[in-house]
Amino acid sequence: MTPQLKARDVSVSLGGATVLKNVSFELSKGEFLAVLGGNGSGKTTLLRALLGLIPISAGHVDIAASEVAYMPQRLPNIGSVPVSVKEFAEAGAVRGVRAGVKPASVQWALETVGMWPLRRRSVDSLSGGQQRLTMFARALVNRAELLMLDEPSAGVDVEHQNEVLSCLQTLKTQNTSIIYVTHELGLIEPLVDKVLVLERSERASVEYFGALPWPSGMYADVHHHHDDAALSLGANLGVSHADLSPLLKS
């Protein structure tokens, strides 16, 4: 079967510095790829390069999917003129020079993320989490075959995170391919088919690409990072190691 997306030896240089080097992977229909890596490892750059928003310095990208939707990490500048939640979601349905907004799709997308009751509110009056849900709804509205999501659930409360994940699960069963950029697997682990771990390196940017579970050594390492993060957060909140133990993986 032809993959929905195929990246071969993709390298990206920005301002003279190599940000990504020799990234290769494939994504088939209905597959869920988690892109992991620390700050500055090039996760967002990879998405933008795949989408053609920044030039690649080597390699090539083939996208077979006819419709692609993108949810960027940051909310665009909307403070100057008010934009309602409904208008923001509708923006996801405009393709090329055709208008073609389907009201039922907009309502479905906003209901899916629980934002339909707030559709008349101005986006700049929402909380950070609600703004991300609205951005997620915009990415959903055209029911694209390939979704590229850059940290979609950052700042979103657990209840709505579950709604996002349940929606992604449904889309996956409907053959939507999903690339999900995140700092840690956390709640998305059950959905993940493949993982691409990026690292800053002179040799190659890909630390690991493959299916879960992790190779044994790496698995422990990732859990170790998870536990470190949980302990650090607990220390900041004044929560003891004993209280955190149900959350720790190793």
Partner: peptide, 22 residues
């Protein structure tokens, strides 16, 4: 005819490019 495209491009030019808006 192009007001909607102008709006989307002004709102978020990168998303507009992904959606093949000129």
């Amino acid at each position: 005819f192009w007001g909607r495209q102008l709006f989307v491009a002004g709102l978020d030019s990168e998303v507009a490019m992904v959606q093949r808006i000129p």
